[in-house]
Write a protein that binds this DNA or RNA. Structure first.
Lengths: 219, 219
DNA sequence: GTCTGTGAACGAATTCACAGCT
DNA sequence: AGCTGTGAATTCGTTCACAGAC
């Protein structure tokens, strides 16, 4: 099998990668970052399985969609694996992010250290409330929502985060897409519609609690 | 087939319900609430499929794990379905919630209207920072983290939300479990360990962006 | 005719188990 | 001996398609 670095994308495009695999890739990356921070030089699939709670065979299978990164008899070089995973996930470049909605949740996201720590930089925020427009929060200016396309024509951010009330979510989506955004993280508890090619992930915080409630009542 | 209301739990316990089904149940509930608010009296599985983006057969199969709630030839009574789904999810009773971590994210969750709107009430918050302890945020007192068990011996909340930094997450989990919490929503980007019987859901906000990044770079 | 509820068929994802490399 | 990478086997979840209810 070809193990040269640039066979990576080919492998990814030939076989279809299950979405659960992509989500786990992020977990592996988190784990491997921690190991490197702890000074662990090398890890076997079994060690990573213990740390993440994900089956070792699953880990190896997940990686196999993208290439061969381990050494039989030895395991994986932690720094090397981190670099590969980052590259696979498209995290070797900085990502600029637009935030729409500067209420409680939006403000919290603006100062959430985990985003810049992992390469996601909120470069502009937007709101419809006149009293919020013009404020600077955590070094980020809040613009009026109507200026979204104009502001992003200079910034060219590809990722949008929606932290607006339910009723405003769909119009916000449309404005983000019109401004050139390709990927959207939606915190509004509503199904949003986008044209094919635009990637959306929904995070309904209350829904998370509802799922917990189910398992509570089921004992 | 038995369609009496109290056959519900039996059905749920006899056949194992897939976790994706539980997550979709929450989406159906959201949809049905909206329809009732819009004054829609009745809905077919096809209409619900259109609103949620979930396949109609999937919807019917999901419901079938819990009973028969529709009328052939007619569809589902919206109010009735909402009541059934609420009951299935354990949402017919109020849920008291403990929040640990009153930083940016924690504060935002304290004033997030979606929680009380859907029956989840944060009844106490906890932090380790002395300057935050004693403050009242959105009607909720912030206690010192060391008082968690003491405070909850009076409140008896079953659900905990973790909004503390990564390094403090595991000790926070242990304190919540020691205080009698049975279900945990964890926002810290780290794998936490709990004894069997405790339900955990992890929401890593940055991981959501990482997944988007993957699909961006894969075109 | 319309729409539900569900067994059967299908497809997807996980886990096993082992050949092959170090 | 230890561990990876991966076909094969298995498990799990989704979708089909239709019998039966209204």
């Amino acid at each position: 099998m070809d193990t040269t670095p640039n066979s990576l994308e080919d492998a990814a495009n030939l076989v279809k990668v299950p979405q659960p695999t992509i989500e786990r890739l992020s977990a592996y990356l988190q784990c491997v970052r921690g190991m490197r921070a702890d000074g662990v030089p090398t890890a076997s699939s079994t060690e990573i399985a213990q740390r993440t709670g994900i089956n070792a065979a699953q880990f190896r299978k997940d990686l196999s969609y993208f290439g061969e990164f381990g050494t039989p008899g030895l395991g994986y070089d932690v720094a090397d694996l981190e670099a590969h995973l980052s590259r696979i996930m498209g995290l070797d470049a900085r990502h600029d992010v637009l935030l729409v909605g500067a209420g409680n949740l939006g403000s919290a996201l603006l100062s959430y250290p985990g985003f810049p720590e992992r390469g996601f930089h909120i470069v502009a925020a937007f709101d419809s409330e006149p009293q919020r427009v013009g404020q600077v929060l955590n070094g980020c200016t809040i613009y009026h929502i109507d200026d979204l396309a104009k502001v992003n024509s200079a910034l060219n951010a590809q990722v949008g985060v929606i932290a607006v009330p339910r009723v405003a979510a769909q119009e916000t989506v449309d404005k983000l897409v019109a401004a050139g955004v390709q990927a959207i993280l939606n915190f509004a508890p509503v199904t949003i519609l986008v044209r094919p090619g635009i990637v959306v992930r929904n995070v309904d915080l209350t829904s998370q609690l509802e799922v917990l409630s189910y398992y509570l009542s089921a004992q």
